[in-house]
């Protein structure tokens, strides 16, 4: 028996050394190049620090004097979120059936999936800008935006739920000669209803958050109030709005989590 080994190296995650070092090099080059070409204008940044100071000193203390505007903005956001959730769910249900592999037929399935992918891919702010151009400034554009946003999320998860249903019940209905709609109503719907309610409550919370954002590009709600305050350099009011937004989001997250736990 020869001498005991006294060297050891951890087996590398990527076996081939060429690939491994190639990957390291590629990452390093990417990071260095993108960082080096970042257009950082240091004068602008130091200038920016002064601005930041002005913004922050202007923001403190937060100004709640125009709480009337604030409350109106919030109520509008809430209305937008509620209507968008209801509208979004109403659209999501048929769409989810279209996009469920086990219920739908091929062309319809692809159409359904396609719509969901498009709805999911665009950030609500982009959707909002388009809607603002099409139907004008205000809460209507906001509600339409959030309908699209809701559809992307609710229809996707609902379709996944439908794909998981117990098919025995569907077959039982079919075997007694029930039509398509009664089959859906008695065999499929009861199975997906709890998920739908849960998704709806979750989406209401998401929509409330999102409505604070889409307002910035003119789609109504508290976001519009915030954007206005920021644009008019009312940083103390902007801070007040932001603080209230954060508070409401925390509360709404807690409430929605609580309700979902109760019904689950």
């Amino acid at each position: 028996m020869n001498a005991v080994k006294d060297t050891w190296h951890k087996p590398p995650f990527i076996k081939s050394p060429a690939l491994r070092y190639g990957l390291y090099a590629a990452v390093a080059i990417y990071v260095v190049l993108t960082l080096a070409t970042l257009p950082i204008d240091w004068d602008r940044v130091s200038d920016g620090m002064r601005r930041a100071q002005r913004i922050f000193s202007g923001a403190f203390p937060p100004n709640f004097e125009r709480s009337g505007l604030l409350i109106d903005g919030f109520l509008e956001s809430l209305k937008i979120a509620i209507l968008a959730t209801v509208g979004g769910i109403a659209l999501s249900v048929p769409l989810a059936f279209m996009a469920a592999r086990n219920i739908s037929v091929k062309p319809v399935y692809f159409l359904g999936r396609g719509i969901i992918i498009v709805a999911r891919s665009f950030h609500p702010v982009i959707v909002a800008i388009i809607f603002v151009k099409a139907v004008g400034f205000g809460p209507f554009a906001g509600a339409l935006t959030l309908v699209v946003y809701s559809v992307g999320f609710v229809a996707k998860l609902l379709a996944e739920r439908i794909e998981e249903i117990d098919f025995g019940q569907v077959e039982a209905m079919r075997s007694v000669g029930a039509g398509f709609i009664p089959t859906l109503a008695y065999a499929v719907f009861p199975q997906i209803m709890p998920r739908l309610v849960g998704l709806g409550i979750y989406q209401l919370d998401s929509n409330l958050r999102a409505s604070a954002v889409v307002g910035i590009v003119g789609a109504g709600g508290i976001g519009a109030t915030l954007a206005n305050a920021f644009g008019r350099y009312d940083y103390d009011f902007a801070l007040a709005i932001t603080m209230v937004i954060v508070g409401v989001i925390l509360v709404s997250e807690a409430v929605s989590g609580f309700i979902r736990k109760r019904i689950a």
Binding site: V4, D6, W8
Partner: peptide, 16 residues
């Protein structure tokens, strides 16, 4: 993970 040689030898002895 660059352990001292002495430790690696010891480890192999014990594992053996």
């Amino acid at each position: 993970r660059r352990y001292p040689r002495e430790d690696i030898r010891h480890a192999y002895e014990l594992m053996e």
